[in-house]
Design a protein around this nucleic acid. Structure first.
Lengths: 209, 209
DNA sequence: GAAAGGACTTGAACTAGATTAAGAAATCAT
DNA sequence: ATGATTTCTTAATCTAGTTCAAGTCCTTTC
């Protein structure tokens, strides 16, 4: 999979970064004391990535939860025939992580790359463990977050099996209207589980209507 | 969808039921004090259901988490064309719930029925809220359970888009070897996202090898 | 134990979507 | 600006999986 001309860049840029966004996403679900906020933000590692950079690479063991502060990431799976399948796009406010790799300490089958210049926070797994041990309110936050994520995942499974490609495309447009404007169509096709050629046909058919 | 000859049975049978199984599943992930065990089990509503009975029906608002103590349940989605799609089989030790209906108080799009006579525990949502408020260790338990469930859901999405029907069938046989022996093939086909006719063809092809 | 309904299979015709190959349009590097 | 690389589209051909229709076997019921 090739994005722009940028090659793999392992030199992350560390910077000061605004934590308002991430805190407001958390306090939408739980209430935090100033102490909890302070400790939480002290664990975050802010990183700037450029379009095309890898954030995680398949084959390596994942050690971080990732939160997108601005920009957009894409997580994809490369099958044995070397075909890529986009699993998720993550825009501002989203979390992403390979939970299997993270919890089982096994090498990941997913890669995550930046689709645009992005600001992200990395939260190391061991820091998260300290966090929830010390402040159980974060246990609740992640419980709620995973619970909501499960709803989305279940809907995607239902759709994969009961919707046509065209219906999945319509749903995608409704749910993520901003994404289509800057994500290359081939990645959208991959996310929908179809070829770029077939997405092209669907788009033409819909234009003609 | 029709299972055996049993008709809808809304008269659940309440009985004493062994809580060893459910407690051992929980203590695999977290350690409980005797007080926590006691309080937790006091919230559970044991129910016996017969093969074919509905446990939850689409169109109604879900109010319970469900844990299977013995037997087997099936959760399915009925699409606008009245075709059923099996989402999950739940055997002993599994939890099931429509999290969307449960958290948003909206009517469920899923139905859950017993594929065999089963013993289940129902945990009302409001009781769960009391539980996690009082004993945060259960917040952790459900966080871990949802986290693990997400891994499984993610794998199913990957497979839906990158495996052929035959590969999905092979994976299903490996992962749930006991299920094929008593679950009607048409439900397995539905779970795999194919027609019973096509599953038949796959099975024949594999027999000939 | 006959009849009836459901479960599973088989085969023929069909379709959603893949593959291959090529051209057009957009983007990027120098 | 120009050439090179990538993205998107179009069209022809092909295939995995569906639909429809019929037939067999098994289970349940009276």
């Amino acid at each position: 999979m090739h994005i722009s001309r940028n090659s793999f860049n392992s030199t992350f840029i560390f910077v000061a970064m605004d934590t308002k966004g991430i805190l407001s996403h958390i306090t939408r679900h739980v209430t935090l004391t100033p102490e909890e906020r302070e400790f939480f933000t002290s664990l975050l590692i802010p990183v700037n990535v450029k379009q095309g950079d890898f954030v995680e690479q398949s084959g390596e063991v994942t050690t971080n939860f990732i939160h997108v502060n601005s920009g957009c990431l894409m997580t994809y799976f490369t099958d044995p025939s070397a075909n890529d399948h986009v699993i998720q796009f993550s825009t501002a406010g989203w979390w992403t992580a390979d939970l299997h790799s993270l919890t089982q300490n096994q090498s990941s089958i997913y890669s995550t790359r930046a689709l645009a210049d992005s600001e992200i926070f990395m939260l190391p797994k061991i820091r998260l463990e300290e966090l929830v041990d010390r402040y159980p309110i974060f246990e609740r936050f992640f419980r709620i977050m995973f619970q909501n994520s499960l709803v989305t995942h279940q809907q995607r499974i239902v759709q994969a099996f009961s919707f046509t490609a065209e219906q999945r495309y319509e749903y995608f447009q409704q749910k993520y209207p901003q994404l289509e404007q800057f994500v290359p169509l081939k990645y959208i096709a991959s996310y929908l589980g179809i070829t770029p050629e077939f997405l092209s046909k669907i788009r033409r058919k819909r234009m003609e209507k």
